[in-house]
Computed example of a mutant assay.
Amino acid sequence: MNDSQRIKVLFVCMGNICRSPTAQGVFGKVVREAGFAERILIDSAGTHAYHVGEPPDPRAQKTARARGIDLGDLRARRALAEDFRAFDYVLAMDQDNYAHLARICPRGMEGKLRLFMEFAPELRIREVPDPYYGGGDGFERVFDMVEAAAEGLLAEIRRRYPEVAGG
């Protein structure tokens, strides 16, 4: 399957070292376990260039490893307006990053931009909190939230694109 036939998902936070690589790793695991790894392309980016080229935060990597996910190969990059052309979903972790992405979103592509937590309405949480300045328990909480939203996102993709994701 070539890239034009795949569903493409981009997760975005501020620096691309905590929340968005966590979402990339968790969603990647959910997609692999469902047997759709060849059908769904997953990436992450940051709205700011603070950490371009850096791996995810060591605390995010540690939490991920404890849950059977390896984030070690990921490297931070900055989100670009071109990402809206390349991806089917551009998912912001919080309202601030959503607003930044809305400013760079090309006209006509606004429907691709959403808050990631929309896919876990049962949690009644709109934003994934930034765990960067907190302790390790913040990363655990983020992983729990992201896991719920990842399952909801896959369910949406399966409904919306049955020809690609076997809905």
Rank of each mutant, 00 (worst) to 15 (best):
N2W: 09
D3T: 06
Q5W: 06
I7D: 14
I7H: 05
I7R: 12
K8W: 09
L10K: 02
F11C: 08
V12A: 12
C13Y: 07
M14V: 09
I17C: 01
I17T: 03
C18T: 00
R19Q: 00
A23E: 01
A23T: 03
A23N: 02
A23D: 00
K29E: 04
K29F: 03
V30I: 15
R32Y: 04
R32A: 15
G35D: 05
A37H: 13
E38C: 08
E38R: 07
R39V: 08
L41Q: 07
I42N: 03
S44D: 10
A45D: 12
G46R: 05
A49P: 12
A49G: 15
H51F: 00
H51M: 10
H51R: 05
E54L: 11
P55L: 01
P56A: 02
D57R: 00
R59L: 05
A60F: 11
Q61L: 00
K62G: 08
R65N: 07
R67E: 15
G68N: 13
D70S: 10
L71S: 04
L71M: 05
G72T: 14
D73M: 13
A76N: 04
R77A: 00
R77Q: 05
A79T: 14
A81E: 12
A81C: 10
A81T: 09
E82S: 13
F84T: 06
F84H: 05
F87W: 06
V90S: 06
L91K: 06
L91C: 12
A92Y: 02
A92P: 09
M93R: 03
M93K: 04
Q95L: 13
N97V: 11
N97F: 08
Y98W: 14
A99H: 06
A99G: 11
H100V: 12
A102P: 11
I104M: 07
P106N: 13
R107Q: 15
G108Y: 15
E110H: 10
E110Y: 04
K112Y: 14
L113E: 14
F116N: 07
E118D: 15
E118V: 12
E122W: 02
L123A: 09
I125P: 02
I125G: 01
I125W: 04
I125T: 08
R126N: 04
R126C: 04
V128D: 06
P129H: 04
P131H: 06
Y132F: 07
G134N: 09
G135E: 10
G136S: 08
F139A: 05
V142C: 08
F143H: 01
D144P: 03
M145W: 01
M145N: 02
M145K: 00
E147K: 01
E147S: 10
A148K: 13
A150Y: 02
G152M: 06
L153K: 02
A155W: 01
R159K: 07
R159D: 09
R159V: 05
R160G: 01
R160C: 00
Y161S: 05
P162N: 01
V164D: 05
V164R: 01
